[in-house]
């Protein structure tokens, strides 16, 4: 049996991938090469949407973490986990992409510039959130720890964003419509929408997987801290052991 969330997650991911094909086709073969960076400038269409996506899904995780602590519902706990993981996949990609872009343009794969340093901290901080989650068995305690750690790790998100304004950096400042020529803006914006849809789709799928795990865990009889029987409205028959 498939479910609505499975279909929605798969469909959004597919639409995201399809749009990304369009954006990257335009970026790689239609858009002009950048005046200084030449063809290497085409990395823009992958790197910048990934950065926006990473920060955005961490923002989503932050909101879900607040929801989780406020309500105590496992749906929010699963949503927090899902978006932390999607954001972390994107942040990992962000660091690799940036490094491969930095080598031909800046002349180095890595330097401890404020933007790069705070981005590496971002990946590490949310990596710890995911690790922490694996280390705690008791569901309520795990949900609380995940949410609190997510809120604390989120502090780095605005710092990453503002790092290029607050401190001297090698990384360029935030780009805008004024600093990007229109033939380059179009594939960039399409790629940004694509990454947004893809990220939402993947988050829905991940949320579903996490929720199934949490439900299975609660249904398992040998847990030390088995909760009282739940009123699974609409559930037919006892869950499998």
């Amino acid at each position: 049996m498939t479910s609505r969330s499975y279909v929605a997650g798969a469909a959004l991911s597919a639409i995201g991938f399809a749009l990304l094909v369009v954006a990257h086709y335009l970026g790689l073969f239609v858009a002009p090469r950048e005046a200084m960076m030449g063809d290497v400038g085409r990395i823009l269409y992958v790197h910048v949407p990934t950065a926006w996506g990473a920060l955005l899904f961490y923002l989503g995780a932050f909101v879900a973490a607040i929801g989780s602590l406020w309500s105590g519902r496992r749906g929010w706990d699963a949503a927090t986990t899902a978006m932390v993981e999607v954001g972390t996949v994107m942040t990992f990609l962000l660091l690799v992409q940036g490094s491969l872009w930095a080598r031909p343009t800046w002349g180095t794969y890595w330097t401890w510039d404020p933007r790069l340093t705070t981005s590496a901290v971002l990946a590490a901080a949310f990596g710890v959130v995911l690790l922490l989650r694996r280390l705690i068995d008791q569901p309520a305690r795990r949900a609380t720890a995940t949410a609190v750690a997510t809120i604390v790790a989120f502090v780095d998100v605005p710092i990453v964003y503002f790092s290029v304004k607050w401190w001297n950096s090698l990384h360029q400042p935030v780009s805008s419509r004024q600093t990007i020529d229109s033939p380059m803006m179009q594939p960039l914006l399409i790629a940004a929408v694509a990454v947004l849809l893809l990220g939402i789709g993947l988050s829905v799928l991940r949320w579903r997987v996490e929720l199934a795990r949490l439900l299975a865990e609660e249904a398992a009889p040998d847990l030390p801290d088995a909760p009282a029987p739940l009123d699974l409205s609409g559930a037919s028959g006892a869950p499998r052991g």
Partner: peptide
């Protein structure tokens, strides 16, 4: 020991005969 080049936040299409 190391010379690094800073790129601005500008992305421009090259102009002909610039």
């Amino acid at each position: 020991d190391k010379v690094m080049v800073k790129h601005s936040n500008e992305y421009r299409a090259p102009t002909e005969g610039v």
